[in-house]
Amino acid sequence: MTRSLTLTINGTKHDIELEDARPTLLDVLRERVGLTGTKKGCDRGQCGACTVLVDGRRINSCLALAMSHDGAEITTIEGVADGETLHPVQAAFIENDGFQCGYCTPGQIMSAIGLFSENGTANDPEQLREGMSGNICRCAAYAGITEALLDAQTRLSGKE
């Protein structure tokens, strides 16, 4: 039985038809909308590569049934830069080598953006690492990721 839903993704409204109710939000983003920046890692909610913001909150899109989010506002990695200007968190990841292979990076960046909106900012690296524990980096670029988050906070507070 076909299903239809509407998602506002990075500010653009998308009417989506599904053959049945099974697709996850992750699969809809990648396979229907063509936004492949959001990655499929484990597909089980364990790695965080699929992290997106739904109505401003970070979640694992692989464990979200798309139909259940009909009407939601989704922000993916494709939607965070301001034109050619990188989001401060993106810029901080590049500046601080917050990655190696890069596969987990979109999820890391979306998770960091979500973390900052949840907690404001924290200068305690331990608190940042704990806040990012839902994002696994198999290259183990964690030292750079923590540096990137500290730097991103400085950049974000400078903007305010």
């Binding site: 909610g45 979640i59 694992n60 464990l63 949840e118 990012m132 524990s133 839902g134």
Partner: peptide, 9 residues
């Protein structure tokens, strides 16, 4: 428990 993403959902 879990991760921030999971606790949010």
């Amino acid at each position: 428990g879990a991760s921030a993403q999971l606790r949010n959902a």
